[in-house]
Amino acid sequence: MELPVVQPVTPKERADAVANRQRILDAATRLFAENGVGCTSMDAIAAAAGVGKGTVFRRFGDRASLALAVLDASETTLQEAMIRGPAPLGPGAPPRDRLLAFGDAMLDRLEEHHEILLEAEISHGSYLRSEPHAVHRTHTRHLLAQLRPDADNEYLVDVLLAPLTARVFTDQRHHRGLTLKQLKAGYADTVCRLTRDC
């Protein structure tokens, strides 16, 4: 008779450690947005978070790892809003309104984190096969299927997600000078035309 395997118990993190981690992530998010990742030191992040530099290094290792942690946190927040948040980004709104809210949320996220997101897309060549992108594809495909059950939504989902990538956003926003308002209006117009639901 085989004995059951006892799963190792993951030690619960202390409340102060959880609070420190969140303070570090909040400070890094703000400073990365204000100064860019390359111009933000770990010293500055530690000072803004009110913790020692050693705490930041022990927790995250280096600036690149901290930047990815900021990205993970913002992706988790976005997905939580899509799945359980209030309408129109969350459930309960018409599919077109949800697509528009998703586009707005993605563009806001790009505005805040475009440098980190661009680095993630470039460094990890398989971005289009990444878990976050798969979630975005599934969400968009689900909403499109409700609006255009007759269409090739496998293709249309790519059309709607392409302008929400960091490469396209960075070119439009930072090289060609389009405003965030223009990008949101353009995305809304694209959704309207593709879904024929204006």
Score class of each variant (00 low, 15 high):
60 F>P: 00
179 T>P: 01
36 G>I: 07
151 A>K: 12
150 D>I: 09
132 P>L: 01
198 C>R: 07
124 H>A: 10
48 A>W: 03
10 T>N: 12
127 Y>A: 10
164 L>W: 01
130 S>A: 12
31 L>I: 08
177 G>V: 06
99 L>W: 05
193 R>V: 08
109 R>L: 01
43 D>W: 14
99 L>N: 06
129 R>D: 14
197 D>K: 10
142 H>L: 12
55 T>D: 14
86 P>N: 09
174 H>P: 04
48 A>P: 00
1 M>D: 08
44 A>T: 06
142 H>D: 14
113 H>W: 03
128 L>M: 12
148 R>N: 11
48 A>N: 03
6 V>T: 10
53 K>S: 02
9 V>A: 13
58 R>F: 15
137 R>C: 13
90 G>E: 01
163 P>M: 04
36 G>Q: 09
137 R>V: 12
178 L>M: 14
35 N>M: 07
177 G>H: 05
139 H>A: 15
158 D>T: 09
92 G>N: 07
164 L>Q: 00
69 A>N: 06
15 A>P: 08
115 E>W: 01
105 A>N: 01
79 Q>S: 07
124 H>M: 13
15 A>G: 09
171 D>R: 11
155 Y>L: 14
165 T>H: 08
15 A>S: 10
107 L>N: 00
85 G>E: 01
26 D>R: 05
106 M>F: 00
20 N>P: 01
184 K>A: 00
88 P>T: 06
152 D>S: 10
80 E>C: 15
27 A>M: 03
107 L>I: 00
150 D>S: 08
101 A>R: 00
41 S>Q: 13
190 T>D: 02
167 R>Q: 11
4 P>E: 15
1 M>H: 07
91 P>V: 02
115 E>S: 01
115 E>T: 01
154 E>L: 15
158 D>I: 11
17 A>D: 03
103 G>E: 00
134 A>M: 10
155 Y>G: 13
181 K>C: 05
82 M>G: 00
125 G>W: 10
45 I>E: 07
53 K>M: 06
40 T>H: 14
155 Y>S: 14
172 Q>T: 08
28 A>H: 03
162 A>D: 05
110 L>P: 00
34 E>V: 05
42 M>P: 00
128 L>N: 11
36 G>C: 05
27 A>S: 05
87 A>N: 02
23 R>K: 09
148 R>F: 13
44 A>K: 10
112 E>D: 14
91 P>R: 02
110 L>A: 06
52 G>E: 07
43 D>S: 15
141 R>Q: 13
2 E>K: 07
6 V>Y: 09
149 P>V: 09
113 H>G: 02
68 L>D: 10
166 A>Q: 03
25 L>I: 13
86 P>I: 06
73 A>Y: 10
197 D>F: 11
6 V>K: 10
144 L>W: 14
138 T>N: 13
154 E>R: 15
63 R>K: 14
92 G>W: 02
12 K>V: 12
45 I>F: 03
30 R>T: 09
37 V>I: 09
64 A>G: 04
136 H>Y: 14
187 Y>V: 02
23 R>N: 04
125 G>I: 06
159 V>R: 04
37 V>R: 06
82 M>L: 10
51 V>T: 04
145 A>C: 10
74 S>Q: 05
158 D>M: 13
148 R>Q: 13
126 S>C: 11
62 D>K: 04
133 H>E: 15
180 L>Q: 08
127 Y>D: 07
66 L>K: 08
48 A>D: 02
